[in-house]
């Protein structure tokens, strides 16, 4: 039941918003949920400093503004922030590398909570460790706040390739593969049988155009998170709607072409090699 909400979000777009006005635009544009946070990742990246859970007042103002689910971020390992978010009745907690980690060894014991958690992953081992800790939804991390989809593609392809490897392995090999992946054996055996994660796999980090959305969905993502890509574009309202439509009709290039036409500039974007801090490296 905890993972049921993730099933309901499939085929949808979850948008980062920093105030009720943006939340309304997201809902009007067909977002399936919003992520309430104080600064979008590109601003966190620009401003530096410690990034923490958002002010409860701001989260509540967004909950009051929209009828769709509201998610919020806690720092990696910061179970007290997660307790606060649960007390605020948020619909999903993102234990997120976009915020400054609070624990450099341990993630939150997510089995301890009633509210479901989403966590990021760059590879299959990381995804299965998070699921072992109780995550109900995995998002490939990408590199948040860059407007550059290259890392999202790398992480999705890595997770999928590693799942294919498990599928082709015989049962004797799974013990060593679990060791190599640093992942719980039972989950490795399950993926080997089913060929997919035990929870839905969404994609985040760098998606900033309808074409990006179509790309990652064709690569196997079941829904997408868009952070800076919408509200850092020239025309957020149109960009939001275009990405929603491209997500539904991701295999129909005519629809994606139509919604991509005359959109104005997407967010500027950053070359990954020029980054001082890679957020995807946070989390272990």
């Amino acid at each position: 039941m905890k993972r049921g909400l993730a099933d309901m979000l499939r085929g949808g777009v979850i948008m980062d918003v920093v105030n009720p006005e943006q939340a309304k635009i997201a809902e009007d544009s067909g977002a399936v949920a919003v992520m309430a946070l104080e600064r979008v990742p590109s601003d966190i990246r620009r401003d530096g400093g410690v990034a923490r859970m958002s002010d409860p007042e701001m989260i509540q103002s967004i909950q009051a503004a929209v009828t769709i689910p509201v998610m919020a971020k806690a720092r990696i390992g910061h179970f007290a922030e997660a307790q606060i978010l649960e007390a605020l009745d948020v619909d999903y907690i993102d234990e997120s590398e976009v915020l400054t980690p609070a624990d450099e060894e341990n993630h939150i014991d997510k089995w301890d909570f009633t509210v479901p958690f989403v966590c990021g992953a760059t590879n299959l081992g990381e995804a299965l460790r998070r699921i072992g800790e109780g995550a109900c939804l995995i998002r490939s991390k990408g590199e948040a706040g860059t407007g550059n989809v290259v890392e999202a593609v790398r992480h999705l392809r890595t997770i999928n390739a590693q799942m294919r490897r498990l599928q082709s392995a015989d049962s004797n090999e799974l013990f060593a593969l679990a060791k190599d992946l640093h992942a719980p054996l039972a989950l490795v055996q399950e993926v080997s049988l089913t060929g997919k994660l035990p929870v839905p796999l969404f994609c985040a980090g760098g998606i900033s155009t309808p074409a990006d959305a179509s790309l990652v969905l064709q690569l196997g993502a079941e829904a997408i998170f868009v952070g800076s890509g919408i509200f850092k574009s020239d025309d957020p309202d149109r960009m939001a709607k275009a990405i929603v439509e491209a997500t539904t009709h991701f295999r129909d290039a005519h629809v994606v072409a139509k919604v991509s036409t005359g959109l104005g500039a997407a967010m500027k974007g950053i070359e990954i090699a020029s980054l001082e801090q890679r957020l995807a490296e946070r989390g272990w």
């Binding site: 099933d7 979000l9 085929g11 809902e27 067909g30 009828t67 439509e245 539904t248």
Partner: peptide
């Protein structure tokens, strides 16, 4: 199906 009714309503219109 289940999902978000506002999203599905929006996409019913645009499609």
């Amino acid at each position: 199906p289940g999902g978000e009714s506002t999203t599905i309503a929006y996409l019913l219109t645009t499609s």
